[in-house]
Design a protein around this nucleic acid. Structure first.
Lengths: 231, 231
DNA sequence: CAAGTATTCATAAAATTCTTATAAAATTCC
DNA sequence: GGAATTTTATAAGAATTTTATGAATACTTG
């Protein structure tokens, strides 16, 4: 199913476009390339894609605006390509709806890994019953039940809210701001320490070794992400 | 009540059948296994089952046809096992009357979660058994009688309503809102203090040590839960 | 009106959430 | 590469919120 997935690459540098195109096609993907945001949107009108890889810095419509445009009409997974310094913009893109990011300079393996991860997530998207499972960890939203194997796990209201949000957006990078508003509501965007403490509490309850988490991974400088599928 | 449920597993791969069989029996379920749709139908003639787990891809009668056959004569809950690509078939099965699905590869925890969820749904719907017992506590809904061992217990109307609702939904988390509407009817969702007092009254009557309840457990921030099966 | 029931209020106890301090890890800068 | 700096993790105690409890008050119904 992942084989032959269609990948839209948007970058103004011919070099990078070419490089991604060759490497991805070699891996069996179909690549659509565009050198600008405008052309990318045109392309998407004509042909469907399964993932988009978008450079943050583009002439004209930039990566963030492109992300916003795409998000307005579809849930197409978007991976951001960002240079090493643009943390602020990167975070902005994630909050606009991008799913993941890769920092330049990147290795092809890294990009492919992200693509795979994102594709996997999209396939198992809709569910009859709101039960999510991640290996041993099972979250039943209908009954507000969390179990780790056979052990039922008691969560406080905030712990539960955090887990819920993270599990429902598993695989995506979730910025601190996103998590803070998800749990505390709007107006608490700066209370990063509270988030850290809450994350720790949750880790203590669901991770076997909280210091080596396998569900709640931290993305330094950005936020957290929930179990980006076994790589 | 879920314990000891009978589960029919239909899969042509011995490996998977075996695996499910072992894991489910370990959890206390009784497993009936069949390697084909035909055998499954035969088995169902001979022995009743509480849930069926059916592989989508079967030689001969496939999962969808089997679902249809079963649906023609019973409401036996059916959980579909599907490989990652068969989205179309999966949807077809659900439309034919399957209740839920699990995507291969699956974890046992996930399958168990689905089974439990489905069982709960079914048990909650039909009110066959008007007598529930939880250790010493016996509730006879038909005669509106409650006993603790030999002692008959007198309950006020509201206490009885509360007990009834909790006992009929034993094992799950019941939010304050749910309990309030169950006892007071709609429009009383905010009267949490009344609920607390009522819970206390009921505890005084049915718990040996009301301060260390073993039937009515509290879930701080959420609500209450009635005796999550003897652990 | 009387007896039992239900609600409200005040306060004690328990649990959760927040804050603060320090250790560990990651990142940046030279 | 290694020191300095920022970021994240961890622990423990304080503050806050939620729940339990006892008793007083209001309500219903025969």
């Amino acid at each position: 199913m992942n084989k032959g997935a269609r990948i839209l690459v948007v970058d103004d540098e011919r070099e990078i476009r070419r490089c991604l195109e060759l490497s991805l096609e070699e891996k069996g993907y179909t690549v659509l390339a565009a050198e600008s945001g405008e052309k990318a949107l045109d392309l998407l009108q004509q042909r469907p894609a399964d993932v988009a890889i978008v450079d943050l810095l583009l002439p004209g419509i930039d990566g963030i605006e492109l992300t916003r445009s795409i998000r307005q009409r579809s849930t197409l997974p978007i991976i951001i390509l960002s240079a090493i310094g643009d943390d602020k913009k990167k975070v902005e893109a994630l909050e606009t709806g991008a799913d993941d990011y890769v920092t330049k300079p990147f290795s092809i393996e890294e990009v492919v890994a992200r693509i795979r991860s994102v594709l996997r997530r999209v396939v198992g998207s809709k569910d009859v019953n709101p039960i999510l499972s991640f290996g041993d960890l099972v979250v039943d939203f209908e009954h507000r039940e969390v179990r780790l194997g056979d052990e039922p796990i008691k969560l406080t209201p905030m712990e539960y809210e955090l887990l819920k949000y993270m599990a429902q957006n598993a695989g995506r990078v979730l910025t601190r701001r996103m998590l803070l508003t998800a749990v505390w509501g709007p107006g608490h965007e700066d209370d990063t320490q509270s988030l850290r403490v809450l994350v720790r509490q949750l880790r203590k309850k669901i991770e076997k070794i909280p210091a080596q988490p396998c569900f709640i991974l931290t993305d330094p400088g950005v936020g957290y992400r929930f179990k980006s599928e076994p790589s």
